[in-house]
Computed example of a mutant assay.
Amino acid sequence: MKTLLVMGIGNILLKDEGVGVFCVQALEKEDWPENVAFVDGGTFTQDLFYLFENYDHLLVLDAVRGGREPGTIYRLEEKDLQENSSQQVSLHDIDLLDSLKMAELLGKKPVLTVLGIEPEKIAWEMGLTQSLENAFPDYLELARKEITRILETF
């Protein structure tokens, strides 16, 4: 049976930076098939490469700066992160690419999809800005749909 790891990345102490973690926390409370796992990846994705060998697909939920309005949702694949120099990605995603390379060296590299959302404010403060609070239900719903879409490809 193929497996999916849904990883929320970010720092919940830095306002909108924590949106990926908040999303994965909400999703893991729901009922999902046994081949779907959830993890709070925090901000140290390079240290998590050892997890990847157990999964066929990796869905990352994270704040992504793309220069659009706060709350804009992005769906990116690994090639988008590597080939699109105009796409500003967080440092987490750079670490994530390194982790995927390490996983590949170990012989098991999952397919990567990133579902990102444009932050409004990254500062030492807990919770989301009003912009991201307003966009969060749509982000959560798109994450559910992406999980379902990935499972249908298995």
Score class of each variant (00 low, 15 high):
M1F: 12
K2I: 14
L5F: 13
V6A: 06
M7S: 08
G8E: 04
N11G: 00
I12C: 13
L14C: 08
L14S: 06
L14P: 03
K15A: 06
K15N: 13
D16C: 01
G18Q: 02
V19M: 04
Q25D: 15
P33L: 11
N35R: 12
N35M: 10
V36D: 04
G41K: 03
T43W: 01
F44Y: 11
F49K: 00
N54F: 12
Y55Q: 03
A63R: 05
V64Y: 00
G67L: 14
E78Q: 14
E78M: 06
E78Y: 15
K79G: 11
E83R: 13
S85Q: 10
S85A: 15
S90D: 12
H92R: 03
H92L: 02
D93F: 09
I94H: 07
L97Q: 02
L100Y: 06
K101Q: 12
L115F: 07
I117A: 05
E118F: 05
P119C: 14
P119M: 09
E120A: 14
E120M: 12
I122F: 10
L128N: 01
Q130D: 09
Q130W: 09
S131I: 06
L132I: 07
A135T: 01
P137H: 05
Y139C: 00
E141T: 05
A143Y: 00
R144Y: 02
T148M: 15
T153V: 09
